Computed example of a mutant assay.
Amino acid sequence: MSEIVIRHAELRDLDALRQINAQPEVYHNTLQIPHPSLEMWQERMQNPPAGLKHLVACINDVVAGHLVLSVEPNPRRSHVATFGLSVCGQYRNRGVASALMQAMVDLCDNWLRIERIELTVFVDNEPGVTVYRKFGFEIEGTGKNYALRNGQLVDAYFMARFRPV
């Protein structure tokens, strides 16, 4: 199996990120909408808000996954980060999500002084919930009718992980 390399996303990754997030199996489990434009991704990558980090997982120099980490800008919540994760369909079940999660947890625990990492995941996204639990995330609650997906309102779990003491 090829090695997974994690690095910061670069402008050359724009089209790969757009294509990954245009896959129905990806936007089905995120808050993205279908048909993301290249211009939207250019804006996200060229003018990121403060505290935003884009990581990519590459296999043989091909972008296979993407994680966006956002450190909360409010001083009273500067110990908190949230993130979103997507993996290209053809690279699922190859450790891409776990490699991105490991890099993100290391960044938060050892470099950014993050004490709490939060996420929201649809309740029927069992692979997502499984990988998040693997990295110490726990379900804190459920948001009923949290988001619209394929014309239906669906529930989501609120999960969090605290930095080990």
Rank of each mutant, 00 (worst) to 15 (best):
S2A: 06
S2L: 04
S2H: 01
I4N: 08
V5Y: 02
R7D: 05
R7W: 09
A9M: 03
L11Y: 06
D15K: 12
L17G: 11
L17A: 08
R18L: 08
N21E: 02
A22Y: 00
A22L: 10
P24Q: 04
P24M: 03
E25H: 05
V26W: 13
V26H: 14
H28I: 05
H28N: 12
T30D: 04
T30Y: 00
Q32Y: 07
H35F: 15
L38G: 13
E39H: 03
M40C: 12
W41P: 07
Q42I: 14
E43A: 09
E43V: 10
M45Y: 11
M45S: 02
N47W: 15
N47C: 15
A50Q: 00
A50P: 05
L52G: 01
H54S: 15
C58Y: 06
D61P: 07
V63H: 03
V63T: 10
A64R: 01
H66N: 07
L67I: 12
L67E: 06
L67R: 03
V68C: 00
S70A: 15
E72Y: 09
P73H: 11
P73V: 09
P75S: 07
S78R: 12
S78Y: 07
V80Q: 08
V80R: 00
F83L: 02
G84E: 00
G84T: 09
S86A: 07
V87Y: 13
G89R: 12
S98K: 12
A99G: 02
A103S: 12
V105L: 13
V105E: 12
D106G: 13
L107T: 13
L107A: 06
L107V: 01
L107Q: 02
C108N: 09
C108R: 03
N110C: 13
E115T: 08
E115K: 01
V121T: 02
V121E: 04
F122I: 05
F122V: 12
E126G: 06
E126A: 01
P127T: 09
G128T: 00
V131Y: 07
K134W: 08
F135N: 01
F137P: 09
E138A: 15
I139E: 00
E140V: 14
E140P: 13
T142D: 02
K144G: 05
R149G: 08
N150I: 01
G151E: 07
V154H: 00
Y157S: 00
Y157Q: 06
F158A: 08
M159Y: 01
A160E: 03
R161G: 08
R161I: 01
F162V: 11
F162P: 11
V165A: 15
